[in-house]
Amino acid sequence: MTIAATYADFAARELRGVSPAYERLALAVAGDDDLLALIGALPPAKRQPNLLFGVVRLLGGPVEDPAAFHDFAVANWPAIEAQMRVRATQTNEAGRCAVLLPALARLPQPLALLEVGASAGLCLYPDRYAYRYGDHRLGDGGPVLDCAAEGLTPPTRLPDVVWRAGLDLNPLDVTDGADVAWLEALIWPEHTHRRERLRAAAAVAAAEPPLLVRGDLVDDLPALAAQAPAGATLVVFHTAVLYQVPPPRRDAFVDLVRTLPGHWIANEDPDVLRHDGLPEPPNGAMHNVLALDGTPLAWTRGHGQAMVWFG
């Protein structure tokens, strides 16, 4: 897929009806020869719309008006390019815990959670947040994570988590203002509720920081998994991470995670992590598939705001 097609597809699949500002930007970039040439000089893994838009926001650039965005990006491209080369889209959306929870609640308790691609580790606290599945409320913590769930009897208990650890090439620290600024820059402009949720989840993590290890999802996973306490069910999980991993490395990770004790939960685009016999997605907004030990269970939305259970 060309860079222009990637941006146009992102506008249609991810942004329409979700972020009008970013939809306008993505469509404008798709037709902007100047910006396409600049983006094309970056490594393929660094050409993503989310990364470009997040870096421009981090640098104080305009994202509401495509013409102003073009002028800022062209004038400041050396600074933008430098940031895009060293950063990654580490969106740490605590709302994704709402689609992970039904799978976590089914497992033998207590749990030892190990997140691959953990960013700042905000998804390592599913036991500390509260949830609302329609009229069903669970938990009394904060923030409250709303999820429109179809075909699912909502969980009746929170998981019992006794150990939490994360693995990331560049783990972020919620007590570091610069790291939090990057996490906020990755939240789409109109999503005030997600920024508030990020701050609330960051406060939870800062009160009891997880074990975050800088490392590779293949080379360093076994050693970290071995630190999980005896008597707890190890759960290795990841959500919207594998698209950033080259296919051969992705395959090596899948082969490895299947050999580890415990369970494996994935929430990924089916074009990235394939499953046989998937039902058709119920609508164009469901882009990820929740799977437990390789068995698909549900279609989910990218920020955890909805799921359709079929497992």
Rank of each mutant, 00 (worst) to 15 (best):
R13W: 03
R16L: 13
G17M: 04
V18L: 12
V18M: 12
S19M: 07
P20R: 02
L25I: 00
A26F: 02
A28D: 10
A30C: 04
D32K: 00
A37H: 04
R47W: 11
P49S: 08
L51H: 04
P62N: 07
E64T: 12
A67D: 15
A73P: 03
P78E: 13
Q83L: 15
M84I: 07
M84W: 04
R85Q: 13
Q90M: 08
A94F: 05
R96G: 08
C97F: 04
A98L: 08
A105M: 01
R106N: 06
R106P: 03
L111K: 11
S119Y: 06
Y131K: 06
D135A: 14
V144Y: 04
A149P: 07
E150T: 13
E150D: 14
T156E: 14
L158Y: 09
P159Q: 10
V162T: 14
L167K: 02
D176W: 04
A185N: 03
R195H: 07
R197Q: 15
L198V: 07
A200M: 12
L211G: 01
L211N: 03
L212F: 00
L217F: 05
A225M: 05
A225G: 05
A226W: 05
A228I: 11
G231S: 10
T239Q: 14
A240P: 10
L242E: 02
Q244T: 13
D251A: 15
P261G: 12
P261L: 09
P261W: 11
H263S: 05
I265E: 11
P270I: 03
D271M: 09
L273E: 06
H275A: 08
H275L: 06
D276W: 06
D276R: 10
G277Y: 08
P282N: 10
R301W: 05
R301A: 13
G302C: 13
V308C: 14
